[in-house]
Write a protein that binds this DNA or RNA. Structure first.
Lengths: 294, 294
DNA sequence: TAAAAATACTCCATAGGTATTTTAT
DNA sequence: ATAAAATACCTATGGAGTATTTTTA
């Protein structure tokens, strides 16, 4: 059995106002509508809620109990509406961003900082992993939106370019480099399978480039350390070494074939409606010129 | 702004079932009705609650929040209905009985004991006072029902006889009493204004009875103590001295004019609906033969 | 007699139904 | 191809209105 909440609302108002007529005014209804509501409610519940004479309205025991409980229901209703209103106004909500490691560590912090500053009530999570993991998490609804380096292949996923990331060739300032014979140097490369590794391999094959020596490392940070130690050359996302170059600890070697770039892509689940926080976040990332280096 | 609780109920069921079709079954509605309810709710709230594909239904952030809160609303609704049901079945409720002092102390305890035994979940209060006080409390809705000795005069009150109470003339067994010359004895009487006092005065005037000596006391108990001490004769509600007479500590003097009785009356507020506990209590008092003495 | 609630009736908005289409697996 | 949700359209209930009567202070 269910309660008719319309009728309950009328009853609560009558109890509050101690008057059918006043309740009608408060609810923008007519007095007969209130009369009917209370009567129907009493018939539904098979119990008398109000003792009424034409001069006064008073609650029965049952009416008083119902009134108290109904009030907390309608209070909860208001809380609920407030919550929804807050979400509509982005004063409440949650955003889970997935990003591959470099993006999470170097590109996103500035955007996320700006986001949380503008929308301080939106709870933000940033999860990082390799491109594949992120795509899985998008598929499993574990993240609202992903940012990855590689291409998006799964048909269920929507890939869209966010921006280009520049890869730059670095060396130690102490290392003597001949720009016309880069093949002769030792190249520090990421393992194949990693986003950066794939781009570099593609670059090698496109330019029929065969380094004399290669050293394969497991992370970009390790590669940079190797280069700093004068261990060789390395193609690395420029954003990672931007300040190190500025400080003169690393040197940038221009490539004859021109700047090497790769796309950073949004990943989202096709057909999944865009939450308001996600919408705001994507807009911020597209419009804001927080960082232009790369 | 208000929520349509019908729609909310449909939404909650969809969230619980993870299916529009199942929700329709659970609510004994059709699937399109559920579709419409959810859509209307989303339009009302101006926020998306469900991410739906034809194969799965999942809650958005806002939907999850709404679901949680709505569940507690409907839980409260059930509590409310249970409460009402309990009241209908007299497994919850409250009864306030007002009674004049003697009735409260001597007549009612047995009935109230039986009442609370039969209806252990009805909370009972017994307030005692003089007949006038009780009538005022009935008028002020402070008690549900009153039991008084005197007549009920106020036009707003409904008086109805419950039973007759026998008054008996008592003396100490050690006191030598001449039944043909009772006027010669000292009579212990209640102050005028008290219920018992009025009855005794009426008795005196009806029988042109002029005791040689009178002692006026403030309570029936004081009167009994006086009689026990051999201080004189006294007309007293028989129920008060029933066991004392049986034990031989007091003696009953038969009256030549026959047994003296006075009515005990129910007092209630005219037009006030009878609560279920009151109904049960009155029925018990009328039917039960708990006490026949008096 | 005056103020408030109840009643009688009327109407229309909408909740819910049926039939069908769309969508995604 | 199938199962589920959405859509279109229709019907009927019941919520709310107006007019009036009843009640009691």
């Amino acid at each position: 059995m269910n309660i008719n909440f319309q009728y309950l609302r009328a009853f609560v108002e009558v109890a509050r106002c101690q008057s059918f007529t006043q309740a009608a005014v408060a609810l923008h209804l007519t007095q007969p509508a209130i009369s009917k509501a209370v009567r129907e409610l009493e018939l539904d519940l098979e119990i008398r809620l109000l003792e009424r004479t034409s001069r006064q309205v008073r609650l029965t025991e049952a009416g008083l109990a119902l009134y108290d409980q109904a009030r907390s229901i309608f209070a909860l209703e208001q809380v609920m509406l407030e919550d929804i209103k807050a979400r509509r106004g982005l004063r409440r909500g949650r955003l889970v961003v997935g990003a591959s490691t470099t993006i999470a560590a170097y590109w996103l912090p500035a955007y996320l900082a700006q986001f949380t500053q503008r929308l301080p009530d939106i709870e933000v999570s940033l999860v990082s992993g390799n491109s594949l993991t992120i795509q899985h998490q998008v598929l499993d609804y574990q993240v609202d939106i992903g940012l990855v380096e590689g291409p998006v292949t799964d048909a269920r996923l929507q890939g869209q370019m966010w921006r280009k990331e520049r890869l730059t060739l670095i060396a130690s300032p102490t290392l003597e480099v001949d720009p016309t014979a880069l093949e002769n140097h030792c190249w520090i490369v990421r393992e194949s399978g990693s986003g950066t590794g794939e781009v570099v391999n593609q670059f090698f094959s496109e330019h029929r480039f065969q380094p004399k020596r290669r050293i394969e490392v497991g992370s970009n940070m390790a590669a940079i350390q190797m280069v700093l130690a004068g261990g060789g050359l390395c193609l690395i996302p420029r954003i990672m070494v931007h300040s190190t170059i500025d400080q003169g600890q690393l040197r940038e070697i221009p490539l004859a074939s021109g700047a090497l770039e790769r796309p950073l892509n949004w990943v989202s689940l096709k057909g999944r409606p865009v939450s308001l926080p996600r919408q705001a976040f994507e807009q911020l990332c597209r419009s804001s010129s927080t960082i232009s280096s790369g």
